Computed example of a mutant assay.
Amino acid sequence: MNERCAAFRALHHADRPLLLPNVWDHAGAAAFAARGYPAVGTTSLGVAASVGLPDGAAATRAETLRLARVLRRLPLLVTVDVEAGCADDPAAVAELAVELAAHGVVGINLEDGRADGTLDPAELTAAKVAAVKAAAPGVFVNARTDTWWLGLPDPLPETLRRARAYEAAGADGIFVPGTPDADTVAALVAGIDAPLNVLHRPGGPSLDDLHALGVARVSTGSLLFRAALGAAVDTLDAIRSGTTPPTRSPSYDEVQRLSDASRQ
C-alpha cells in the first residue's frame, strides 16, 4: 500500500470523524485544500448535473476519470464516487478502479442502489468489491448500501446483512446514507466491524455527536453542489431585484490563485 492510500485509511481512525467535502470540479477542491481539508470525495450528482447527464445511470465514466486527472494536481487525497461501478461486470468495475488509482485516487464509493429505485443483489455488489480489492488492493473501498435511501421497510436487518457481505468481500468501509437518527447510527456502529460512513443531515447529529456514536466518516454528498447552485440563483435574483446578494463571493483573483497554486 502506498503512503497516500495509508494516509487516507488513517483518517478513518482519527480523533474525530473524517469530514469529507464532496466536489464536482477543480475550483471547489482547491478551495477546500486551501482551508486545510486533507481529503475530498466527488459527488456523482454534481459531476453528472454539471455536464447535463443523469446521476446513477452509469453515464459519467469518462467525466469521472477526467475529474480524477484534474484533481491529482492538488495537495489532498481524493476518493471517487463511481456509483455502482459504471458496469454490472465486476471485472469492468475493477478496471475502472485501476484506472482511477493510476491517477492518484486513493478510494472509491461503490453503491448497491439502482437508478430505478431497486437494489442490486448483495452478491453482485460483493463480487464487485472483491474484484476491486484483488486488482487494486490499496484502494479504500467504501461500500454503500442504499437500504434507507431507497425506503426499504424495516431496513436495519437488510443493511447489516449487506454490510457484512461487503466486509467479507474486502470492503474497507461501509456507507449508509439516509440514517434517520442517533439510535439507528448507534445500532449500525455496533453491528458493523468496518469504519462507518454516514451522510451529513442538516438538523441531524453534529460531528461531535457522531464521533461519540463511533462514526468514522461524514460525507456531504451532493449538499455542497446544491448549495452552490442555490447561492448562484439567489445572487442572480438579488441583482434583478436590486438587493444585496446574500452571500460573499470569492474574488476573481482569489479563484485565479487557487488554480495557479495547483500548478506550482
Score class of each variant (00 low, 15 high):
L124V: 10
H103R: 00
L224Q: 07
D234R: 11
A130W: 03
T244R: 14
F175R: 10
N22F: 06
A62P: 00
A7R: 14
A10I: 00
V189K: 06
A62L: 04
R69Y: 01
D208L: 06
A57M: 10
F140E: 13
A10E: 15
P137M: 13
P205T: 13
V47Q: 09
V139S: 10
G204H: 11
L11W: 06
A48F: 08
D234C: 01
A87H: 10
V80E: 15
V106R: 04
V215W: 08
V132A: 12
R4F: 02
D183P: 02
L45E: 12
D193V: 01
A232W: 02
S222M: 09
L152Q: 14
R162Y: 05
G36C: 10
N22T: 06
G151S: 14
A186H: 03
S206C: 08
G204N: 06
G104L: 13
R217G: 12
R226H: 05
A115G: 03
L18W: 12
A6K: 05
A171Y: 04
A168G: 04
V233K: 02
A10R: 11
G173Q: 13
A126S: 09
V129T: 07
V47H: 02
A122F: 00
T244V: 11
A7H: 04
R114Q: 12
P137F: 15
D25E: 13
P195H: 09
A14W: 05
D81P: 10
H200Q: 12
N109C: 11
L119K: 04
A92E: 15
I239V: 13
L152T: 11
V82R: 00
A7M: 00
N197I: 04
P250A: 14
V78H: 08
R114P: 01
L188N: 04
R144N: 08
D25R: 02
D181S: 04
A31T: 00
P202E: 15
R161Y: 01
G36R: 07
P157L: 04
V176H: 13
G230L: 08
A87M: 07
L213E: 10
P250R: 03
G113R: 11
R4Y: 07
A33Y: 05
L18F: 09
L119M: 07
V176P: 00
I108H: 10
V82K: 01
L119F: 07
V129I: 09
T60W: 01
V129D: 14
T79Y: 04
E95G: 10
E158G: 09
E99L: 15
L236G: 10
R164N: 03
D15C: 07
D154P: 00
V98P: 00
N22L: 07
A48D: 09
V70D: 15
P121T: 05
